[in-house]
């Protein structure tokens, strides 16, 4: 605590010495350091790691996690959390698949799917603000309710979709050499980045998360801001669900279980604060890359998924520990 205070005192008066400045830069970019370390280690151990095919493979595998994490970044910055994204993913993939199965209209199906996500997001936001329930509890409940509902619709059966357009637009297709799922990831990234960095809503999201009372005193309609960030989160979870079910040629009510934790981990690794007010989508991207390359690399050198899960947990704790606790 004393150390932080010293840094604080010094910044008031003058520039930091070089050594300390490097320390601060290192701490605030810990996720980047982690990524470089992970890539270096696996690149060294496994010759296949740097192959173009493998890199595209990582990108494809990562697209679902990344899109969900991008979408949830505004929610986390606003000082909230969304545990229902995995369930939303499943629910949206079901409504999309059912619509396409019934009408053979891909665009209509996608719209229905995204609307499903938006609606769940709206409910989350509405209950967390107007209802006065902490978002952790709202979305914990929503996670169960939505997942259960998705199971009930088809009595847990998968919904097969035979539609070439649906497959190629999202899960399987390519534009040139670029898989469509990576393209969607890029679109999601740009959208959230622009939202947070350049839009008024973005500034309000930071303000609400930074200090809810002060935001209210500034005349910001804080409830509206929080609801919007949940709606955005729901829409992107739905997009992730559409991509996943398109890749599997079927929607299943049990997909995406536990994904919310990976998404949250990516965001926190990326430097966002669970208390809100801090973070950005570039960090989230790097965080997702760390988690993704770690998984891929461990498989390449022959470890099973349990080792992956364990290593991922350790890396998250280590990264947050290195980044140092933030005193606000």
């Amino acid at each position: 605590m004393a150390k932080e205070k010293i840094i604080e005192d010094t910044i008031i008066n003058q520039d930091l010495r070089k050594k300390d400045r490097i320390k601060i830069i290192f701490r605030s970019n810990i996720v980047f350091v982690a990524l470089v370390v992970v890539i270096a280690v696996f690149g060294f151990i496994s010759p296949n790691f740097f192959r173009f095919e493998n890199i595209l493979n990582i990108g494809r595998q990562l697209s679902i996690l990344s899109i969900m994490a991008f979408g949830m970044t505004p929610v986390i910055i606003s000082g909230n959390i969304d545990l229902s994204v995995g369930a939303t993913l499943a629910m949206a993939s079901m409504t999309t698949a059912l619509t396409i199965q019934a009408t053979d209209q891909v665009i209509l199906g996608v719209i229905v799917g995204l609307a499903t996500g938006a609606f769940i997001g709206f409910l989350n936001g509405f209950l967390s603000t107007k209802g006065g329930i902490p978002s952790f509890l709202t979305t914990l409940g929503m996670m169960g309710a939505v997942r259960g509902f998705a199971m009930i619709i088809t009595s847990t059966l998968a919904v097969q979709v035979y539609n070439q357009k649906y497959w190629s637009w999202f899960g399987d297709g390519k534009i040139g050499f670029l898989p469509t799922s990576i393209m969607w990831t890029i679109i999601a990234f740009v959208f959230i980045h622009v939202l947070l960095r350049y839009s008024t809503l973005g500034r309000y999201i930071y303000a609400v998360g930074g200090n809810l009372r002060a935001a209210n005193f500034t005349g910001i309609k804080t409830d509206k801001v929080v609801i919007w960030s949940f709606v955005i989160c729901g829409i992107f979870s739905a997009l992730a669900g559409i991509i996943l079910s398109s890749r599997m040629h079927a929607a299943r009510p049990n997909i995406g279980e536990g994904y919310e934790l990976n998404a949250i981990a990516a965001i926190i690794l990326g430097g966002a604060s669970l208390f809100g007010g801090k973070g950005n989508v570039i960090g989230t991207l790097l965080g997702a890359l760390v988690i993704g390359t770690l998984g891929n690399g461990l498989i390449l050198i022959g470890f099973d998924t349990y080792v992956q899960t364990m290593v991922r947990g350790i890396v998250i704790i280590a990264a947050v520990l290195f980044a140092g606790r933030e005193k606000v």
Partner: peptide
């Protein structure tokens, strides 16, 4: 501190918000 400022945000962001 609790009602007027966003302590972890920059001077610019604080000033510009209204």
């Amino acid at each position: 501190k609790n009602e007027g400022l966003f302590l972890s945000h920059s001077i610019e962001h604080n000033l510009i918000l209204p």
